[in-house]
Nucleic acid binder design. Sequence first.
DNA 1: CTGTTAGCGCATTCAT
DNA 2: ATGAATGCGCTAACAG
Lengths: 337, 337
Amino acid sequence: MKQHQITINDIARELNISKSTVSRALTGHPKVSPAKRTAILELAEKLDYQRNMLAISLCNNRTNTIGVIVPEFRTSFFPKILVAIQETAAQSGYNVIVCQSGESYETEVKNTKVMLTNHVDGLIISITKETKNYEHLKIFQRKGIPLVFINRIVNEMAVPKVVVDDYEGAFRAVEHLIQTGKKRIAHLAGPENLLISRNRLNGYLDALRKYNLPIIQELIIPYDFNLEKVKIYTKHLLELKERPDALFAINDPTAVEAIQVIKAKKLKIPKDIAVVGFSNEYSSAYIDPSLTTVAQPLEEMGIRATQALIEQLNKDISEWKAVTQVLKPELIIRKSS
Amino acid sequence: MKQHQITINDIARELNISKSTVSRALTGHPKVSPAKRTAILELAEKLDYQRNMLAISLCNNRTNTIGVIVPEFRTSFFPKILVAIQETAAQSGYNVIVCQSGESYETEVKNTKVMLTNHVDGLIISITKETKNYEHLKIFQRKGIPLVFINRIVNEMAVPKVVVDDYEGAFRAVEHLIQTGKKRIAHLAGPENLLISRNRLNGYLDALRKYNLPIIQELIIPYDFNLEKVKIYTKHLLELKERPDALFAINDPTAVEAIQVIKAKKLKIPKDIAVVGFSNEYSSAYIDPSLTTVAQPLEEMGIRATQALIEQLNKDISEWKAVTQVLKPELIIRKSS
DNA sequence: CTGTTAGCGCATTCAT
DNA sequence: ATGAATGCGCTAACAG
């Protein structure tokens, strides 16, 4: 139950001037006499006046709001990116509204509806592990609302993208394992429809190839990010006749879960089996043994994505460019390898 | 650069009826002939029509949006609460916009301005460690916008609050340490202006009193959540003539940081010094040694806060009740104690 | 520099 | 059951 709200009419009436002048003073329009300007600003301050963005947005047909859809908040990965997005957006006067899809395609579709209904000026999205149909995203293109992908991108859509070089990150990680003498390197891979999964897998494969190691299919297990399953798969790997001597996991939570299983089996890390993760979670430095992992420049990712989006916001649709920015990952070697 | 947007006028024109009828059909008004209703709904679907919430909000003077301000995203604490808030809000048709204050009072004030400007219908907030002045929050009360505090509350403001029983959580944690034979229990405490800090400190003190243990001031160190300082304080504690034999930390990140220092000093946990944290971060089960901690029902906290807020949204301001809900924490005993 | 007018997209009277 | 008219709070031409 709201109360009466102070409007420009109130302050116009009080000052005996037209609301246009008030509006001008408030928006910083140059052609307002200094005397009136200060009077207006003072009264606004005194009355605790707040501009009604709803009305302003309705006029301008833009909300100064950026939508962000991410798959999860379980890890620190997306929160870190989000903070950067928020800050970058704020610097340009944009608000951010966030939805999380919970890795559910259905929820993601609903989220896009929310964004549309709220008339976001643009959208930054990282798709779910389930998303294979992109109709809900193409709507934004059709409506002329700029879209930017981060991390989990849709290659076939011609919009700006910001990603980390997953291939190189994976390649480096596996190369590092090889250089420490490992020869049977398992890979707990991600869902096959995600490009990050495929790129990391390719990095893994190419590293093996470069060093003339055999590619052993039974050591490559894609899974759906359901951490419960990591136990099963890791056990399975450890019970193979020829046990792997290293494990490259699609991400840190997976690696951490695998490490628990390995420790429960009384195997030594990294002596019996080395482990490398991906994404450098906060906790990865603190677990036992501390986890070797591939760090991604998340803050930069958020900044670049937001900048790419805002750039489009200020250009005509005909000038939009679908540039893909690829950021460099960094291998952080700790005690698990 | 937006393109043309489908409006009710478009579909009214197409169907040769008035936009009033279209509006009625779309809002589910009963008095619309079934034939027209279906025709309208079908065309809307076909045209990919999206209601313009801006315009609707402007009419209703409500946005169906709930604002949330939290101090940080570094830990999984607030993200977990947020997810619950989002879901609960969505069930009642509310959107959520989130700001993070980054533990800065100044940013928090800015955040509240953003919320006001965006005309949120209500606000859920957890204050920063710096917030000692509450004028920016009282504005909401004056404007008749309902407010709900979670976790980090302002006792002197008469609005609904949802908290965990920090006192009891701390008491249990310290009692547990005492029962395992510890006698010199240090406490890395939180900022003194936060009620959670004071409550946890009191739980700590009362547990010592109950078991007739002396309260030793030099073992109680309040700090400002700047993790860098944990190293210094922990080192200091370990170098005391009479070293503490246990440490109760204000939260898990603090405990984890302290554990690193303790391990670096080659002291055994929990034999030489036991450690207990607070809040049960995801990673706390995985670190070495796994961390004993006080778990909080975060999901329930988010749900209750959202429900409390929505309840107020539907009542007249005169009926608002400032109920404080206190949720029970749970001690999770692991290997660090 | 300033006031007047129109309209953003919609819900909601008031008529019919 | 439906249409016409009004206004939410504000900006943006348009005149002076």
